[in-house]
Amino acid sequence: MNIHAITAIYRFEMSRWGRTIGQSIASPVISTCLYFVVFGSAIGSRIAQIDGISYGSFIVPGLIMLSVLTESISNASFGIYFPRFTGTIYEVLSAPIDYIEILLGYVGAAASKSIILGVLILATAGFFVPLEIKHPFIMFFFLVLTSVTFSLFGFIIGIWADGFEKLQIIPMLIITPLAFLGGSFYSIKMLPVFWQNVSLLNPVVYLISGFRFSFYESADVSLPLSLLMIFVFLMVCIVLVRWIFKTGYRLKS
């Protein structure tokens, strides 16, 4: 295992994040605050409790997941796309490292950023609404698992994209709508039965449901099913990444 290489990539990515700390942290934290003001206070005060939880508190896990999903994808995709765009990827490709080490560096850094962000948003939420975490270990496990899985997915997007536009397409046109429709701001039990069934096709439902369970023991789907779905998605990403490095897809000619 080339530990020095993993550390070098990890540090490099974290220092790039540090250079754009305003954009990396302040922006999602401010957006989350705005969600609390709009949905938690302005609209939330007119919404009855859901499963015995005030609306403001109910949306906290969903808002954290929303940011963690989008930032994991954004950080990981940009992290690998940018060296491809500038041409500095030659150094990674010619270095004595295998794909697992490359992933540990890039995906590890992207996931770390998302975990830090998730914790910051959680702390910020504490200023707006009363917070209760019934299962902190499960909460942290979900946070880590989601960050890693979606950073891996972001890494795949960063390899697939051949322009900045493509880099944005999947997060903007697929992930954000799925996150909004995945129960971030409501329980899918509030939907008509048909739409409840349709919602079950949305993988983000399982993430948010499992994550919300760790806070309030309130979930749209069972915890094991939530975990199973994330693991399935993680496996799909791992298989895709293996294929990418085996074939050199968009990395080597």
């Binding site: 020095h4 290489a5 550390t7 070098a8 490099f12 220092s15 150094e91 270095a95 490292i97």
Partner: peptide
């Protein structure tokens, strides 16, 4: 946007 010192050290680390 990287410094000379950091980028050269990065290369050394990358090569183990």
């Amino acid at each position: 946007f990287e410094t000379v010192w950091n980028t050269v050290n990065f290369s050394r680390g990358l090569f183990g």
